[in-house]
Each structure stands twice: as structure tokens, then as C-alpha cells.
Amino acid sequence: MIRVFLAEDHAILREGLRRLLADTGDIVVVGDTDDGEDVVRRAASERWDVLVLDLGLTNLDGAAVLRAVLAVQPRLPVLILSMHPEDGYALRLLAAGAAGYVHKARPPAVVIDAIRRLARGGRYITPELADRLLEQQGAGDDDPIAALTDRQLEVLRLVGHGRAPSEIAAALGLRASTVSTHLHHLKQRLGARTLGELVQYALRAGLGPPSN
């Protein structure tokens, strides 16, 4: 039996996933939460075969959870399940140690297949994401997003979600001056003159809220 832990901030989707996986016969959900810090705490003492991880968790965002969980369970397969496009941001998460990435718009069968592959020690990416990996390898260092640090990418994602600098500081546990420094460096790297232009860049990069 494949033991899965669900980290998802939407209660309806979390319950839907639980029911979907219960019907498979070979996958069991052993726990769930919407709290990023809770995931990290439980990962230190519980044993799962696969962690299904959303990015928009409370208290600690999914990217930070991924790094923290892999620090205590480096061999744990983590499947990112997100509304963010399967593009540059997904590539960063895979590089950070995620074993798979699935967009929430994909059919349920894709999620089940991905979990089974990860439990067997494999990885899961869609053909579209595989194409992006090849494109990135061919592009070298031409992609400005690829040159950002993990913290800069987190700040840019929150900018894309319309968060004010003070809100970004609170969400990431940073000082306001530190966030201002990150925003300054982001503007320089991405050629943005104003915060509004930085927001537009984040949206074009697929780092904003999902469109309905």
C-alpha cells in the first residue's frame, strides 16, 4: 500500500483527493493539512511513501516546505500539485528536489499515475514540461528567471500574487528592509523600473494567481 500525505490549502480539493485515492485500492492517505509548518513538523517523525504538495499553504509556502522536508527526509518523493503553469517555476522546484510536478487541471488519472511512479522510485513530468527542460538546457543562462536565487523567486511569486512589500515580509519572516533589497535586485535583474512592472513580469512568467 502506498502511504500518501496531502498538503493542500483548499479543503474541498483535499477531500476530493482523499476520495479519489481511496478508490484506487493501492493508495492510502495517511494524513493531510493546509499548514506548511505542520508538514515540516510531521515529516520529521512520520513516514510517508509520497508527499503531495501544493504551493499555496498557510504559514509556510510550498517551495520552503519542499526544502525543509527534504532536509529531514532526503529520499522522500515529493509530487508538486499546483495551479502554476508547468514552466519555469516548475523547473526550479524540480531542481530543488521535487520528484514530479502536475498541474491541477490535469485529469485525475494523471495524479494517480504520478503517485505510483514516485512510489516506485521514478519521477513524473508531463511531455510539455520535458520539452521545457530541453529548451532550458539549450538556452543556457539566457533565462533571467533561472538566474534568480530561491529567495528572489519566492519574493517575485508573492509580488505576482499582489502582495505588498509589508505582506511579503510577514509571509517570509523577513525584515521590511530585506524585502526592499530583494525588490531592488529583482528590478535590476529583470529590467523593471517600478513595482508595477515587476508585477507584470511575474504574471507573464506564470507566477501570479491561477486564472479561472
Rank of each mutant, 00 (worst) to 15 (best):
V102Q: 10
R41M: 10
L94F: 03
L183A: 01
A7P: 02
L53H: 03
P74M: 12
S45G: 00
K187G: 09
V110F: 03
R157W: 04
L91I: 11
M83E: 15
H185E: 14
D143E: 14
G196N: 11
P209G: 12
D54V: 04
A176T: 12
L91Y: 09
A105R: 15
R75K: 10
L6G: 03
R42I: 03
A146Y: 02
A64V: 02
H103I: 14
V199D: 10
K104E: 15
A7T: 05
I145A: 04
G122A: 11
L93T: 09
S166Q: 13
Q73I: 00
R151D: 15
R163L: 15
L118M: 01
H10A: 13
G206Q: 12
A90Y: 07
L66C: 03
L156V: 06
A205S: 13
T181W: 09
Q73Y: 00
E37D: 14
L17G: 00
A105P: 00
V159K: 05
Q73G: 01
L20T: 08
L76T: 03
T181K: 11
V111F: 07
P210K: 09
L134H: 08
G88N: 08
D35G: 04
R42W: 11
A139I: 00
V111L: 15
I27S: 05
D150G: 09
V159C: 05
G208L: 02
A98G: 03
L195G: 07
V50P: 02
G97R: 06
L148E: 10
L133W: 12
G16S: 13
G121E: 11
R193A: 12
G140W: 04
P210V: 04
H185F: 11
E154Y: 01
L134F: 06
R67H: 05
S82D: 14
G31W: 08
D9V: 03
A98K: 06
R18N: 09
N212F: 04
L60A: 06
V40K: 07
I115N: 01
A171M: 09
G122N: 12
G88D: 14
L94G: 03
D32W: 07
Q152I: 07
G121Y: 06
S45E: 14
G206E: 14
D32I: 00
R75C: 03
I112L: 09
D54A: 11
Y101A: 08
V155Y: 07
L91M: 11
V30K: 05
V39C: 11
D23G: 04
A205G: 01
L53N: 06
R193Q: 12
L129T: 12
Q200F: 01
T126F: 06
Y201F: 13
P85R: 15
A7N: 07
I168P: 03
A63P: 04
H185A: 04
L190E: 03
A169G: 04
H10V: 14
G138A: 14
V78K: 03
